[in-house]
Design a protein around this nucleic acid. Sequence first.
DNA 1: CTGTTAGCGCTTTCAG
DNA 2: CTGAAAGCGCTAACAG
Lengths: 330, 330
Amino acid sequence: MASIKDVARQAGVAISTVSKVLNGYEGVSESTKDKVNAAIEALNYTPNAVAAALSSKQFGRVALLLKLEETVGCVDEINLQYLSGAIHRAKELKLDVVTLFFSMVADMGLDELTSYLKAQSVEGIIAYGMNEEDEFLRELIASGAFKIVLVDAPYHDRNTSSVWIDQKNAQYEIAKKTILGNESCTKVLYIAGDKKSFVTGERIAGMKKLAEELALELTIEYGDFSEKKARELTFSYADRMDVFVCASDLMAIGAMRALMELDVFHPVCGFDGIPLMSYAGKQMNTVRQDFYGVSAAAVEEVDRLLHLEEGRNVVLGYELVRMRYQDIVE
Amino acid sequence: MASIKDVARQAGVAISTVSKVLNGYEGVSESTKDKVNAAIEALNYTPNAVAAALSSKQFGRVALLLKLEETVGCVDEINLQYLSGAIHRAKELKLDVVTLFFSMVADMGLDELTSYLKAQSVEGIIAYGMNEEDEFLRELIASGAFKIVLVDAPYHDRNTSSVWIDQKNAQYEIAKKTILGNESCTKVLYIAGDKKSFVTGERIAGMKKLAEELALELTIEYGDFSEKKARELTFSYADRMDVFVCASDLMAIGAMRALMELDVFHPVCGFDGIPLMSYAGKQMNTVRQDFYGVSAAAVEEVDRLLHLEEGRNVVLGYELVRMRYQDIVE
DNA sequence: CTGTTAGCGCTTTCAG
DNA sequence: CTGAAAGCGCTAACAG
């Protein structure tokens, strides 16, 4: 591998000059810049990122902290989209990413985790799906040792930003669309997610707003993002409700299945917009979240935090869709 | 962050001595070793991996090269298990992993890709699900620039190993179990995967062996791992066959659905053993592949290759299972 | 057994 | 505008 020294020699300039053009610093004449670039080209030179990191003490490394739920395989698609979005954007921003799973760090203490990450030279962390119970993440934030971006959790400070879509409004809109799209829907069962997830509260707020606006009779139950629970809830509420609004597609499938078994029709709507729904064999309204885009935005945000000390909330858009479920996967 | 220098000072020894105990080299007396360890403890010191890598020119970094099929979300679970297995094992072996997707590198030339990876100080690559069409991977192997482990592709040389389960025998056994477990199954439709995947040929070989042994009438069709195609094939062969052996769970679901629609019963078996099957609402035999374990083994193998120049084929075990599909996800 | 020393490849002052 | 030189934190000969 050619090194910066080779490039310098080839171009007939000093190493520091090469470094300057490499990093796009000003104060290099066009002519030398050209010479350097020619040399880089000729030698097929790629800077050694490790050496650069050591020298500059800027590692630009961010850890992606993912939660792998063993029980529900259907969220894997979401996680993979998160990963894909983050990794692609990180490549563009020339950030280095490492993927970690909660299970790897859950049993570490704060000190151990901190030095583990520091040793890996990570400076930033993107945490997906943190919830109220994740005490250690809270400590990590409080320690201020890292720049952190929380996806789907509402907190920000100097070193911490949050990135998510407007859950409240999305839930409001998809429910509204579903309810107004069908006649005489006043009694609404809202099957919420799990109590500890931050998104749950936001979405409930959206439903309450809608209930007030349309004078609905709103009943709220927690389905814990479980198809089974949603199914059971639907069974027990089927004869008392007009419409079933669910906080996830998976729960919406559970609700639909219950209604099909009972052989009654009620509108159902979901949330997430993942192709998992292909297996349900029906159509329904849902909110398509751009997990890839959210994750890419999180990387941008962590990049920003790496340079500025100024966390913030980033709220992204979403899309209301009517999913056309193929019954069969092609 | 404390550096090796601080540790040396604290322990009253030279930095090279600290380095030696850090790396477990011999030739350090117990007493100084203790002093050094005490200093490390006291200062809560963690070695800087970047500096170590630069200095030793051993980066121990391996890239995981994954293929994300946009069309079929159901393989996401497999990919995530691959990732999880690799990342966990890599942590234990103190290897550094980066996750890459084929889509990120597909449009690069060999030189570009090589220098991209070299710049990232990648020394080893684990490629998942490479198939015959992946020309550039073939070139990468030929270039000899990296230590490569292929998962589910049968090739090895000095710098390349392969890791997979015994596809032929697994297919043989699961089909045998299914066929012998039901009466008078002689006409067998084998719905294979896609022609370009290496596993396809292996599995077909297993079926041929079985057909010979049990004097079966074996018909082979390619379902391309598509639920839809498997379903169509099943429709058209339903009245001519006794049993439907499929090269993936997803195709097995397609076959089962077709049979259910036709309201006839024939035994069906699948391959993979992923919970996706939960959605089918039936039971069937399948081969449970331990994707996590395969991936962990691949990391071990790349670690071995990093030290030895001696690729090989690693064949792992599998399990025949009868999946109990919950119809509902809890 | 222990310490001294020369780098790894790059960034970054600071003179010229 | 350009170049010389001092490290970043660590490893690895090589002396002692």
